[in-house]
Amino acid sequence: MTSRRYTVRVTKDELVFSAGHFITFNGDECERIHGHNWRVAVEVDGPLDENHYVFDFIALRDLTRALVAELDHRMLLPDRNPHIRVGVEGRNVVCRHRDRLWSFPAEECVILPIENTTAERIADHLGDRLRAAIASRGMPFPRAMRVSVEENFGQWATAHWDAEEDGG
């Protein structure tokens, strides 16, 4: 008997956000500020439900779109990077790396609970938020999920979760 696996994938023009960032690399080097038109794709695996689908495409799109909208036209900053200090000073977010200092209007920033604003960590952050959104709405949890972020044409990073590996 063959076993069937089912996957639903959502990636749409509305799952794109424009945002600035900079990362540290080679230890404690820090690149210049720049931006991307990031694209997000989400895949979920699981059995078919009573409606014969894995997950509602529209619900998955809408949940993802809401998370993507929070990042659109913002400066993305990491709060767990050991080489970049990020803090709020008055109405601004101030970042420091060695002798460099940046100041951004707070309402134009998103401080992410990640170590570096790489595509990998942004994908992981979006996946964590998406899993929490699914759980908070009492929706059936997928067997596996992949969130991919394209930071530049043809350059994708993907974070994977598997319920069986997570003990779920």
Rank of each mutant, 00 (worst) to 15 (best):
N51F: 05
M75G: 05
H21T: 02
R98K: 15
G154T: 10
G27W: 11
V93D: 08
R80C: 09
N81W: 08
E107T: 07
N116R: 12
G87S: 14
T158D: 05
A123L: 07
T2C: 03
Q155R: 14
W156N: 08
L63E: 03
L60A: 03
R146D: 03
Y53V: 12
L112C: 03
R85V: 06
P142T: 06
L71M: 09
Y6L: 06
P47S: 13
I134Y: 09
T158N: 05
E50R: 12
A119Q: 13
S148Y: 10
V94C: 09
E164K: 15
E164Q: 15
P105N: 05
R32L: 03
V10W: 02
V8K: 08
R143Q: 11
F25A: 11
G27V: 10
I134A: 06
R91P: 00
E70M: 03
W161M: 04
N152I: 08
R65E: 11
A106D: 03
A159S: 13
H21K: 08
A69L: 07
R5V: 10
R146N: 09
H21C: 09
R121G: 00
L67D: 01
R85P: 00
R85G: 00
T117C: 14
P113R: 07
D49H: 08
I84G: 02
D124L: 15
A59H: 01
S18T: 05
P82A: 07
D99N: 14
I111C: 02
E165T: 13
V149N: 07
R74C: 05
E151I: 09
G20A: 15
E165Y: 03
H34V: 00
P113I: 02
